[in-house]
Design a protein around this nucleic acid. Structure first.
Length: 583
RNA sequence: GCCAGCGUAGCUCAGGGGUAGAGCAACUGAUUCGUAAUCAGUAGGUCGGCGGUUCAAUUCCGCCCGCUGGCUCCA
């Protein structure tokens, strides 16, 4: 008996669709072995072991077979069987991966098998009643994967798909994917002339074009002024340093493979810097510090280079050369928590200023490979936890995901496809102060080791900019827009008035451009609209005579007639207040 | 790095064993126009790179580089 698919939740439907796909695959390619097929956000995947990889044509065949099987409306039957029988069954089927899974299942748990037609799969369930309950699905793409997610294990073939209650929901979802592509920062980066990456320079190395650089400059200025307000000092450090520095810091041991190859300078090895911390430590060490000086906060927009494997590079979001909005705080032990609370506050303030109200917070704890004492790790982790609680931030624990020298808080924001990217990070570190043997003089005259907090708010300017582009689909808030106002004379007769206005707006610090081309106003509007310029000002004989402006906003078609002063006041107010949703 | 797909004009893309094509952009000219595309003309390419097969390769094959989607990784 088949129930309507509305009666099953999406997870169940997606899980059953994964089974349906596995059944189709096994029918079409009997030499394949099944492994796992979980539900993920918006869909599912199934990992298969097979010598020959799946190609796009295969997906069509599999999808067609799935539709046939759904049409046959095969009943899906759950059966609990003894462990030994299950092992025997899957062993006979040659499904050694399934046997491995069975062996890993806790002995208190029952082994259940779901069968539809000739196809049986080890599975906890639940599932829909029969294959006919699966109404709307699509296979999306393939990928290589590894058994148990470890690249030393067998390579598997993964097929991703999506499934919904109805064809209508499916269509809506697929349309959303199409829409998301339009917000892709790589596409917009080209269309709006913000940045580029060239083969000649190298993958993962970003060129910031004038308009992108304008925005970056605004991000940097805002960042710096907020940091000065919060009692940070700014420093600068070089882009390369002797390799010994990284041996002392321990980074060479942990990240050797990710550091740009050393270069030989007068017989000494140098590397491009992968981090800024040792430099800030050296500045701290440049003189004797008193407890009265602490906390000391050194900030730097520090450009670092890390070798990332070619397959992981992704536009601005994952690159090889990037600028961190870094800072290191040197504290007395009793200052950590207060500093952490302040840092979290600053993070939330900055994210909000850029319009990010939705994010995920993670507390990453001690990894398998770590340095330092258990006590220090505990103290640091507790300090982070209590700072999170004081800030009233909801967070998830990410066990074992801390850095080798300490636990951390990460904040992730999402891109147009709802993939999350880490931006902010806060780390407590007892290790580097110890390794570099830094100290300050306590009240009692004794040397004490300070504790370091590493933190970045935007993470990297490149990644943050990438997320920013997608967040606004290129229509930046007025305070960030590379061009805020474009002047559009209707004929050549208004050119001198246009020049005059441009000068006056520039004097006010407003970013203005003129479109003096011999084109119709409709064409100029269209182009300005595509460039997502917040204000378009049409200038015809009417405006010249009355000394006014015909102002059109990016998101509304109505035109308002304003005098220059009123317009300047409007722009300045929106910029000063960093209004997000104004145009 | 791994698997698959892709790489043709500035951009978006078509084509296909006999040395390349569209639209937009650019340039020139005409037009002087009121809120999302005025008209005409011109120019533009070692078809990602190297090698092989062939009388002939942009097309077929191999290797390399790059990009895309995932996997793994991300101090």
């Amino acid at each position: 008996m088949s129930k309507d698919s509305k009666n099953f939740d999406l997870e169940t439907i997606r899980h059953s669709t994964a089974h349906l796909m596995a059944q189709a695959v096994m029918q079409l390619y009997p030499d394949t072995k099944v492994t796992i097929g979980p539900v993920i956000a918006d869909g599912f995947y199934y990992d298969f072991f097979r010598e020959k990889p799946f190609v796009p044509d295969d997906l069509e065949k599999i999808e067609a077979r799935m539709r046939e099987l759904a049409k046959q409306n095969l009943e899906i039957v759950r059966q609990e069987i003894p462990r030994e029988d299950a092992l025997k069954k899957f062993d006979e089927m040659g499904e050694n991966f399934k046997c491995e899974i069975i062996n890993d299942i806790d002995s208190s748990e029952a082994i259940s098998v779901y069968t539809q037609g000739e196809f049986s799969d080890l599975c906890r369930g639940p599932h829909v009643g029969s294959t006919g309950d699966i109404k709307a699905f699509k296979l999306l793409h393939t990928s290589a994967s590894y058994w148990r997610g470890d690249e030393r294990n067998a390579g598997l073939q993964r097929i991703y798909g999506t499934a919904w209650h109805s064809e209508k929901e499916l269509r809506v979802y697929l349309r959303q994917l199409e829409e998301a592509k339009k917000r892709d920062h790589r596409k917009l980066g080209k269309e709006l002339d913000l940045f580029s990456v060239t083969d000649e320079i190298g993958p993962g190395m970003i060129l910031w074009h004038p308009k992108g650089a304008r925005i970056r400059g605004l991000m940097e200025d805002f960042w710096k002024s907020e940091h000065y307000k919060n009692d940070y000092e700014m420093v600068y450090s070089p882009h390369a340093a002797k390799v010994d520095l990284w041996k002392t810091s321990g980074h060479m041991d942990f990240y050797k493979d990710n550091i740009f190859s050393p270069m030989d300078i007068e017989g000494k090895e140098y590397v491009m810097k992968p981090m800024n911390c040792p430099f800030h430590i050296q500045i701290f060490q440049s003189r004797l510090r008193s407890y009265r000086d602490l906390p000391i906060r050194f900030g730097e927009l520090g450009t670092v280079y890390r070798y990332e494997r070619s397959g992981v590079l992704h536009g601005l979001l994952r690159v090889r050369g990037f600028t961190q909005d870094d800072a290191h705080l040197f504290c007395r032990p009793n200052q950590i928590e207060e500093e952490l609370v302040k840092v979290l506050g600053l993070i939330l303030f900055i994210l909000k200023a850029f319009g990010f109200e939705e994010y995920k917070v993670y507390l990453s704890t001690q990894p398998d490979k770590f340095v330092g004492s258990q006590d220090d790790w505990e103290t640091a982790t507790n300090a982070l936890k209590s700072a999170l609680e004081k800030t009233e931030l909801e967070y998830e624990v990410d066990p074992g995901e801390g850095v080798f020298y300490g636990p951390k808080i990460d904040i992730k924001i999402k891109d147009s496809l709802n993939r999350y990217w880490q931006v902010s990070t806060v780390q407590v570190d007892f290790n580097l102060p110890h390794r570099f043997n830094i100290s300050y003089i306590e009240q009692d005259g004794q040397r004490q080791q300070p504790i370091m907090i590493h933190r970045a708010l935007m993470g990297s300017l490149e990644r943050f900019f990438g997320c920013l582009i997608e967040h606004y689909a290129g229509a930046f808030p007025l305070w960030l827009a590379p061009v805020q106002v474009i002047l559009l004379p209707i004929t050549d007769n208004q050119h001198s008035y246009t020049d005059e206005l441009a000068e006056q707006l520039k004097k006010e610090g407003i970013r203005v451009e003129k479109d003096l081309r011999n084109e119709k106003i409709g064409f100029k509007i269209r182009e300005a609209q595509l460039q997502k310029i917040p204000y378009m000002i049409a200038l015809g004989d009417k405006e010249v005579q009355a000394k006014t402006l015909a102002v059109r906003k990016r998101r509304s078609k109505e035109s308002r007639t304003l005098d220059l002063e009123t317009f300047i006041e409007e722009v300045n107010t929106l910029v000063r207040e960093k209004t997000i949703d104004c145009l």
